[in-house]
Structures are given as structure tokens and as C-alpha cells.
Design a protein around this nucleic acid. Structure first.
Length: 426
RNA sequence: GCGAUUGUAGCUCAGUUGGUUAGAGCGCCGGUUUGUGGUACCGGAGGUCGGGGGUUCGAGACCCCUCAAUCGCCCCA
């Protein structure tokens, strides 16, 4: 007799429904369309991998690996991990599946990722990303193409269309590994001198991840960040040329960008180009799409040195920027009595086969169906009646009075023709 | 891991300095009316006031603990 307690959802998971789910789907559909324009090949990747795929590539000491992974032992005692990102798994597949033969290889995918973090606005433990990677191309043109694609995607989603400040592309270079190391040492030396004045977090970062001090939100740090050594002083000629080719390529393609010398990457494998499309519309979670070049990653997985570059974007965050997205409008099929139930079924099937989205109900009560159809956003209504002497058995009724409705009604009239009688617009 | 805020009906929320039987709108169910079409009206179901403990003659209101959600820090998309 004990009452059964309904299990609660897992913290940080989401049940996405209604206009939000439509917006989510719209983001994915737009991504699919755009990636085909750029001829990125679709790949499907496993949701879990051996733990070492991530620990080796992302870096043992990073927070992502040390405390944010969903890891578990399978029945054979092997340590497996739900993917916290796409890149490492794709890199693994490139090495284990012989994808080298396709290099330079452009791939795209999307799906759920998992990170054991505190949920907040636009951040979840199971979250979803779209992802694009170019593997086996050392050329700056690869970086450019990826960024041009990202820019087009955001534009096609209408993000920033009426609101130019909504997203901006922040761009930086981390240099090659020598440049990056020299810069890092200089930063450590610089910040060590003022260590006592830094925030507690940044004193910690000085040891673990000094680059991250640069984007600290703490005022105590910001005063020193302003005068901190910049990567430009440490860039090799080659690294400078590379970055120059990326920026001039973006200019040529008409992609607006702004240099952000404080932009760094949290993960160990990044080199050269680093970028983020940043918005100020999502509270503290400003990064909508981010990525960079990861020339060092393949070696950390035991493969031959292979240059690569890629980005990923949070679908939830993009969906929030897109706003509510309506479900496709439909024609409500409304039988006028219970005896016409099956005729309604038949005409709905006929119209759907012809590509007309139809709204139907399961319950009787024909009186309330009309109101329900309208509440569900039906564009127009088709009443199913007993056929008259001329064989007319339907009447069409205006609901929304919109252009979309007239278009829909015209298509319906083309299909049903003389079977429609009674009153209808025009 | 840390901090702030918030938990009252399926949803959005009222609920006065603690005081009878905890309310509204929407939704849901039933009915009457209307009858070429977003009706109106009537009725009904639905609440361990997140959970536990305490203070009090009396707690949805006050105190403690706990759980959860939201937002922020760390980190990161």
C-alpha cells in the first residue's frame, strides 16, 4: 500500500518540450544543411569510449578529466567514460579506422555529451553539441573555412541578424608549441611577482593553468591582466604568418572578427588559432561556439603527428538565442459527428501523403475539438461532413487569416477539388 | 566543491503583524446553451503547503536540519 514515489530526473538532465524542442531541432536541421554546403561528411560516434581516450588527449590534470567525467567500470573491469567532448573520440576513430586515407578529412556530427558539473543557465550535465572538424590539414585555409562555416551557421539561424551585437567572433592565436611555452613562462614570471595581490583562484591558477588568469572575472586580477605579456611578443615568424593568413582569409570572406589577446583554451591540446563566438545574452555563459587548432592531439593518442582544427557549439545555447520556434502549422481535420470519424481518418491520410501536415484528435466531443485545434495552433480547419448530392463532403474554414493559411488552403483545394463545398474563403 | 535566491493544485501564482474548513486564473473531467465554427454559462475532480524536527494554545507563514530547483563562482560549450 505504500505510495510509489515517482523517480526524479537526474540533476543536470533536461526534458525538452514544445517550442524549445522545436528550436533545438531547428538548430540541428540548420547545422545539417550548412555542413552539407561546405561538404563536411556526417559521422556517428559512440557515446562512450575507453577512459584513456579522454584522459590522454584532454590532459590528466584538467578539471574536465580529474573531476568532471562520468566514468565507470564495465562488467569486464574496463574503465569507460561517457564522452565529455567530441574531438577526442573523432581523433581516436581517425587513427583506429584508417581515416587517414581521406585526409584532409572534414567531418561533422552532433549529439549528447556529459560533464559532471553544477548546472546553471545554458549548462547541463547532459548537454548537446554540434561539432565540425578538419583533420590532416595544416593550412590556415582550413581554419578559415571552419570559421566561415560557423559564421554562416549563426547567420542562417538568425542570430545577430537584427541585433549586430548579439554575437562577436573573438579570435586569438596561441602560437606553435614553442611560442606557447615561452609565453606561458613569461606569464608565470609576471604574475608570480604580484602573486600576493591576485585573487585566491588565480594564485591557484598560477600553478595549474596560468593562461586562465587572463580571463579571470575578478577585479583584483584584471588590473594586472591589462599589462600582462602578450602572445605576440613570443610568436615565431611562422606562427605570425599563420595567424596573418587566418585573419586575412576571414576578411576576404567577409567574416567580422575581433582580436582578443586574452582568449585562451582550457584544454592542453590546442595550438595556434583559438576562437569563440561570444554573446552577452546568456548570462554568465557567453560562449556559444568555440574551438581552435589542435595539432598536438593525435600524438597524445599514439598516432603520427596530424594537424587538425575544429569547433563545437552548444545546441541548448544556440536554441536559447534562436528563441521560441513554432511547430509547423497544420490543417485541423474536424469530423462533424462521430459517424464521420473514419472519413476524417481517410482524408487526413490522403492529405498527409500529399505532404499536408494535419492536426487530428482522438476523442469524440466534436464541439470541443475545434477549440482544441485552435489552441494547438492549427492554421486552418477542414470540416468533414456527410456527402451531399453533388459529392461534396468537406468545407474549409479560416482560422488564422494569415498568408500561410491561404497558401495551405490553396494546396488543399488542389487535392480535394470538387469534394469541397459549403463556405470557404474566396 | 563553494555561495545566493526560491519551493503552496497538472501549470503560473495569491495567501495581510502566526488565528476557523488553504484560494484564483489557466488546464483537465462532466453538463447546459450556441450551431459553418477561436462561444458563454453551470458543476466537478485535483493540495502530505518539498521532507523532517522544533517554538507556540495555534505554523503555509517563525527557527534548525535536509532534499530539490534556479542563478552565480570554479571549470567549461
Amino acid at each position: 500500500m505504500a505510495k510509489i514515489e515517482t523517480p526524479r530526473p537526474i540533476r543536470g538532465t533536461q526534458d525538452i518540450f514544445g517550442a524549445e524542442a522545436e528550436a533545438f531541432a531547428h538548430v540541428v536541421e540548420t547545422f545539417e544543411r550548412v555542413r552539407k554546403l561546405y561538404r563536411f561528411r556526417r559521422v556517428e560516434m559512440p557515446v562512450f569510449e575507453k577512459t584513456e581516450v579522454f584522459s590522454r588527449s584532454i590532459g590528466e590534470t584538467t578539471d574536465v578529466v580529474s573531476k568532471e567525467m562520468y566514468s565507470f567500470e564495465d562488467r569486464g573491469g574496463e574503465s569507460l567514460t561517457l564522452r565529455p567532448e567530441f574531438t577526442a573520440g573523432i581523433a581516436r576513430a581517425y587513427l583506429t579506422d584508417g581515416w587517414q586515407q581521406y585526409a584532409p578529412l572534414k567531418v561533422a556530427t552532433h549529439g549528447p555529451l556529459f560533464r559532471y558539473e553544477r548546472p546553471q543557465k545554458g549548462r547541463y550535465r547532459q548537454f548537446h553539441q554540434i561539432d565540425a572538424e578538419i583533420i590532416g590539414a595544416a593550412e590556415p585555409q582550413a581554419d578559415v573555412e571552419l570559421l566561415v562555416m560557423a559564421d554562416q551557421l549563426l547567420k542562417e539561424l538568425g542570430i545577430g541578424a537584427n541585433d549586430p551585437g548579439a554575437v562577436t567572433l573573438n579570435l586569438n592565436t596561441l602560437g606553435d608549441s614553442d611560442s606557447r611555452e615561452a609565453w606561458r613562462s613569461a606569464l608565470v614570471a609576471y604574475f608570480r611577482d604580484v602573486k600576493a595581490s591576485l585573487s585566491e583562484d588565480s594564485q591557484e591558477r598560477l600553478e595549474k593553468n596560468p593562461l586562465r588568469i587572463l580571463d579571470s572575472k575578478d577585479e583584483r586580477d584584471k588590473v594586472f591582466v591589462a599589462d600582462a605579456p602578450q602572445i605576440d611578443q613570443f610568436l615565431s615568424g611562422e606562427a605570425q604568418d599563420f595567424f596573418g593568413a587566418v585573419t586575412s582569409g576571414l576578411d576576404a570572406a567577409g567574416v567580422a572578427w575581433s582580436r582578443n589577446p586574452a582568449l585562451v583554451r582550457g584544454l592542453d591540446y590546442y595550438r595556434h588559432t583559438a576562437f569563440e563566438f561570444i554573446t552577452d545574452r546568456l548570462g554568465a555563459q557567453g560562449t556559444v561556439l568555440g574551438g581552435g587548432r589542435y595539432d598536438g592531439l593525435m600524438e597524445s593518442l599514439g598516432g603520427a603527428a596530424t594537424p587538425a582544427v575544429g569547433w563545437a557549439a552548444g545546441i541548448e545555447r544556440l536554441a536559447m538565442l534562436v528563441g521560441e520556434w513554432p511547430i509547423e502549422a497544420a490543417l485541423a481535420i474536424l469530423p462533424e459527428s462521430e459517424t464521420l470519424e473514419e472519413r476524417a481518418l481517410a482524408v487526413a491520410a490522403e492529405l498527409r501523403h500529399a505532404g499536408i501536415p494535419c492536426w487530428t484528435a482522438f476523442r469524440q466531443n466534436p464541439k470541443k475539438r475545434n477549440a482544441k485545434a485552435r489552441a494547438d495552433g492549427a492554421l486552418a480547419a477542414l470540416y468533414v461532413k456527410a456527402p451531399d448530392a453533388q459529392g461534396r463532403e468537406f468545407s474549409v474554414s479560416s482560422v488564422s487569416g494569415t498568408d500561410a493559411e491561404s497558401k495551405l488552403i490553396r494546396r488543399v483545394m488542389d487535392i480535394l477539388g470538387g469534394r469541397v463545398g459549403g463556405r470557404f474563403p474566396e
